[in-house]
């Protein structure tokens, strides 16, 4: 059997998940200009919220997913309100914000591990009995199909939000120049709060989808964050299209690397790609 169709399917799915993380990350970076390392653990918050409501309490799955996404958004919003906003008001440097987000990441991950133990859990109800679709010679599960559709939907929705609404206009103005945006009367801190909510909710969705596709564990945030960050940087940080392109490029390089070298080196390959980009094209594919 030819391996290529399945490889392409895998690349698209990996790319789609990285794209979700990168979308939220880029949105937040565009407005605040610092690397929010807590972004990944927010994804884990979403995944574990669904686990708690759907599996432990036995609520309806769809309801649990909605709650999970909202909770992730609220977690991100809360982080901004109680940690990043006070720091911004004090004109703290990006490095201080970065270290604070590193602290938030460490602390939230520990809380999740305390509440839910460190074991690997899956959100899916029907392990092994999932519907499977065949495309050419590749196999794709129902969950993965949902992942692809939600990525397409969210990307489209985000582009509409950014380019067709007043809110989006304000966000773009801030990404260009926060000072000037402030001068023309945009309440930047309120906008940043909302951006944190939206970006974190998207991250939460990513965590939930990963949970249905493979599973969740408290340390899942780090992996997702790193892939999202790498995707954003190689695509062009702060650029929505760039993030998506970077995500698929990362998925491509990773899966090709796995095929040619070996699966264990996946993370190392991803980072090697990042470092190559940082050295030769630090602004990414899209940004000049």
């Amino acid at each position: 059997m030819d391996i290529l169709p399945q490889l392409i399917v895998n690349i698209i799915i990996a790319g789609a998940i990285y794209a979700l993380v990168a979308l939220g990350f880029n949105l937040i970076y565009g407005a605040t200009k610092f690397f929010n390392l807590a972004h990944g653990v927010i994804a884990a918050v979403g995944g574990y919220a669904v686990f708690y409501f759907a599996k432990t309490l036995g609520w309806n799955v769809y309801l649990a997913v909605i709650i999970g996404v909202l909770l992730a958004g609220i977690a991100g919003y809360g982080l901004d309100k109680f940690v990043y906003l006070p720091l911004r008001k004090r004109k703290a440097s990006n490095m201080v914000l970065l270290v604070a987000s590193l602290g938030a990441f460490t602390a939230i991950q520990a809380v999740i591990a305390i509440l839910f133990t460190s074991q690997f859990k899956t959100l899916s109800y029907s392990v092994g009995t999932q519907r499977i679709f065949e495309i050419f010679d590749g196999v794709i599960t129902q969950t993965q199909l949902i992942i692809l559709m939600s990525v397409a939907l969210i990307t489209a929705g985000l582009i509409l939000l950014l380019y067709k609404t007043r809110f989006g206009k304000a966000v773009r103005a801030m990404s260009d120049d926060e000072e000037v945006a402030k001068i023309v009367g945009i309440n930047t801190n309120r906008i940043i709060g909302r951006i944190f909510f939206i970006g974190s909710a998207i991250a939460g969705l990513a965590g939930i989808l990963v949970g249905f596709d493979t599973g969740i564990e408290p340390t899942m945030g780090l992996g997702l964050l790193l892939k999202g960050v790498i995707a954003s940087i190689i695509g062009g940080v702060g650029n929505i299209y760039g993030g998506v392109m970077g995500a698929f490029l990362l998925g491509f390089v990773e899966n090709f690397g796995i095929w040619k070298i070996s699966g264990e080196w996946k993370d190392a390959i991803a980072f090697a790609l990042l470092i190559v980009f940082l050295l030769f094209r630090p602004k990414g594919i899209m940004n000049k």
């Binding site: 006070p86 720091l87 703290a92 201080v96 602290g103 460490t106 602390a107 809380v111």
Partner: peptide, 14 residues
């Protein structure tokens, strides 16, 4: 311990 390390970082930064 990990939780405390994280909180230390946040509080120090703040």
């Amino acid at each position: 311990r990990q939780l405390v390390y994280g909180l230390i970082l946040i509080l120090l930064m703040l």
